[in-house]
Amino acid sequence: MWLTLPGWLIVAAVLSPVLPGRWRALRLLWIFMLYLTCETVLLVVLLGLWFSSGLGRWVRTPYFEGIHYDLVQGVMWVFSREARRVLRLTIETDGPSPDAHPGVPLLVACRHAGPGDSFTLIHALMHWYAREPRVVLKDALAWDPVIDVLLGRIPARFISPEPGRGADLEAHITALAHGLDANDAFVIFPEGGNFTPARRQRGIDRLRRLGLERMARRAESLTHVIAPRPGGFIAALEGAPDADVVLVAHTGLDHLSTVADLWRELPMDKRIVMRWWQVPREEIPAGREERIEWLFDWWERIDAWIEQNRPEDLSSSRS
């Protein structure tokens, strides 16, 4: 790509005047080049770390694990900086101070809507909360070479969203959440996938098939989120009995579900707001059914917050 960059620049410059958005093709070309460059450099660095850790023998020791977390933090910083500068994104974080409850491990449950929300969340956890995240994510993301190699060396789990393929899913989540220390944060997305109207309806239908009519009616009242699947969240609670829970809502990436959505919206020129709530462990119910009710109550609160904080298009506010 770098060898052929002059040709790509000419094509992007020719296309930019005829495409909506200010210099859309050139700005997206730079982000794509940045992504490929970081991917290539990181793969070389990861290979060097594999050799230096005794051909992988000590790669999962605390020393090398810390180096890999530093790599994640560095890449997140680069992409966050360039997203703000090139795509003109404004990211605001609202919630408790990171030192409100120092020395307490965190279990972070976030709504899932739009590509990039998990990266934005991880960036905020590492830079704002100074935490080392443990992440549960879809196995499809392992097709990215750096994600596959890097997350294979730090505490993380790739899971299948298809029923039947992850029979021991809750056991894996409990094991991953076990042993959280004061600077760790376990990250989970209880909805199981990005919000779309179709997924929202499938979640409602699933509750009805299980005979949970009351919960299905509650799910129907949620207009901006999918009814949470409590199994993984409860498994994480059991694996981390001392962790506080942080609930995260965000707006700004809601309508980016397909490649066509991405092409239409990028460059974004948007304001993304992330809202955090931290709940002390002693305020979380002990029983399974009570925890399910508690999680649904919070998802209703998150849904209401999203309704009151709809995404703001900064390009229209400048005009």
Rank of each mutant, 00 (worst) to 15 (best):
D139M: 15
A175Q: 07
E191Q: 11
T61E: 10
R111D: 06
H101T: 08
S257G: 12
I147H: 07
D297Y: 14
E162H: 13
V11L: 15
A198K: 14
D139C: 14
W8K: 10
R301P: 01
A240C: 09
V14D: 10
W30D: 02
R275S: 12
L42F: 04
D261S: 02
R134P: 02
F296Q: 03
I147S: 09
V135A: 05
H112I: 01
M215W: 14
A13S: 15
R165E: 12
F32D: 12
E162W: 12
S53R: 07
R88Y: 15
W30Q: 06
R318N: 11
Q73M: 07
P17R: 12
G114P: 00
D313K: 15
R22M: 14
R111A: 06
R24D: 01
T223K: 11
L3M: 12
R199D: 03
G232D: 00
L253R: 00
P105H: 08
R81K: 09
I91P: 02
I204M: 05
V11G: 12
A142R: 15
E265K: 05
V18C: 07
P102E: 15
L87C: 10
V104P: 02
I67M: 07
E300A: 11
L106Q: 04
E162P: 02
V259I: 14
V44P: 03
K270C: 06
